[in-house]
Amino acid sequence: MPSIAFCSGLNSDLFEGRFGDIFYSESSSSYPSEYWRYPLRLLAQRLILSGWTIQPNSPDSEFDVLYLRDLPKDPVALAALAKRSKTLVVHLAESPLRSVSGIKLLEQLRQYASLVISYMPMPQGIGIPWLTVPLPFLTPPVSPLVHPNALQHFDRRRHLCMISGCDRFGWRRRLSEPLLFYSGSRQKNPVKMPRYVLADSIARVAPDSFDIYGYSWNFARSASKKCWRRSSAQKNDILTSYKFYFAFENFKGSIGYITEKIFDGFRSGCIPIYAGDLSIDDHIPSDAYIDARQFSNIREILDFLQTFNSDKWSAMSLAGVEFMKTQFESSPFSPQIFVEKVASFILCNALKDDHC
């Protein structure tokens, strides 16, 4: 009877027990968050139905199959995991964004991975079974797809917010952060704008209509500090109190990196101002969000938001809510569809079973 174990390569401890036990309570806040535990729990249950067992992981364990959520920073740790695994399944989520060199990333995959799962298209000549599947919107079952207050009226909401962490030491580490804001079609070269620059720009011109939530902004040495409200709270409870929010990904490109940010706005009735994956229109109705690429600067975005009256805002807000109600569960971002694709891929390729 084949067995599978789960762990995260981005944890400081690869065998952090709470992730190894995917049936652990969602109340834990360690990385990866409860959002990843939910689809992996579904995946485990799906494999159990196919006759597999779930193996607890520990530093001394050997595995039939090890599902590694992202690569560890240390290649030595990756080599050790591969040595103890008959089949190493690598799921690339944040690794491509953190890797110093894409070439080194592919070299590590070729050397150690048996199977690869990623939102990215398969690189030419990789020579490893590769499943391209979008990141699921990772909503635990205790959280409804649409927040009970998603239809809260226009007049009862504040104007604009951003939910993001900030480096507490003067943001020096953020200077090397990937693209987080981009100018649009009017300029050939996108403008790099890390979140702290975005926040500071808005705080200087519209401090009374802009709020920031997230860790360490209270240590900021700039105009954005006065817009900071608090560090932690449930994101969707916050968003139901706002008309608009900045849903900016950690990466810009056409590699399929679409995360929970835009869906968080939809399920809260808050209109996302989106910047990130260039293929977003292929997956999401364009009448449900504001595309930041259509504007050349922050001032243009802020001016555009002022054109929304109650009817215009309600129409766009409702489009996002309706997407979550009627289209999301059949979309590739659904955890259930993600699990079926991943389970079939593992069953077909991991141990050469007759499940293809």
Rank of each mutant, 00 (worst) to 15 (best):
H159A: 02
R299I: 09
A113G: 10
A5R: 06
I346K: 13
Q108T: 00
L88F: 04
E107L: 14
E34R: 12
C7V: 10
S50M: 05
V100R: 13
R186L: 03
M316V: 11
F338H: 15
S224I: 00
C161Q: 07
T132K: 05
E62V: 05
S209R: 15
I48D: 00
P59V: 01
H147A: 04
G214S: 09
M120C: 07
L351A: 01
F323K: 12
V90P: 14
E177C: 11
K352W: 06
K83F: 12
D13V: 07
S61Y: 04
K104F: 15
M324K: 09
I126T: 04
F154H: 01
P190H: 12
G276P: 14
W228F: 04
Q55C: 04
Y35F: 14
F323H: 07
P32S: 01
F248V: 01
L115S: 03
F345E: 05
F137V: 06
N309D: 10
Q306S: 09
C356G: 00
S50K: 13
R230G: 02
W313T: 03
N309K: 02
K188M: 13
N250P: 06
K226H: 12
L179V: 10
T240M: 02
S201E: 12
D277C: 02
A275V: 02
L305F: 07
I22T: 06
P207S: 05
R37I: 04
L10Y: 10
L97Y: 15
I301W: 00
F19R: 03
I128V: 07
S296L: 04
S25R: 09
D211H: 03
N297Y: 02
F246A: 06
V142L: 14
R168A: 15
F328R: 07
A5L: 02
W36S: 13
N189H: 14
T87K: 05
S224G: 00
S176T: 03
Y182C: 15
M1N: 06
L68Q: 09
A275L: 00
K252L: 12
W171E: 11
E300L: 04
Y67K: 03
W130T: 04
D354E: 14
Q336W: 08
S95Q: 03
V76H: 13
T139R: 09
D208E: 15
P72W: 02
A79H: 04
T139C: 11
K352C: 11
W217P: 07
W52D: 08
F154T: 00
K252N: 13
K352T: 09
I290G: 08
R157T: 06
R98F: 08
D64E: 06
T259K: 08
R18V: 13
W313L: 08
W171N: 14
D264S: 05
L105T: 10
R173P: 06
F263L: 10
C270M: 07
T240W: 09
I202Q: 04
S30T: 14
S3G: 10
H91I: 10
G125L: 07
I301S: 00
L42T: 13
W217Y: 10
F308I: 09
W36Q: 12
L145P: 05
S50H: 09
S101L: 05
K188G: 11
G51Q: 06
R18F: 10
P144C: 13
K325I: 12
S28P: 03
P194M: 09
L78F: 07
S310K: 11
D291V: 03
Q111V: 00
N297M: 02
I103W: 13
A247S: 15
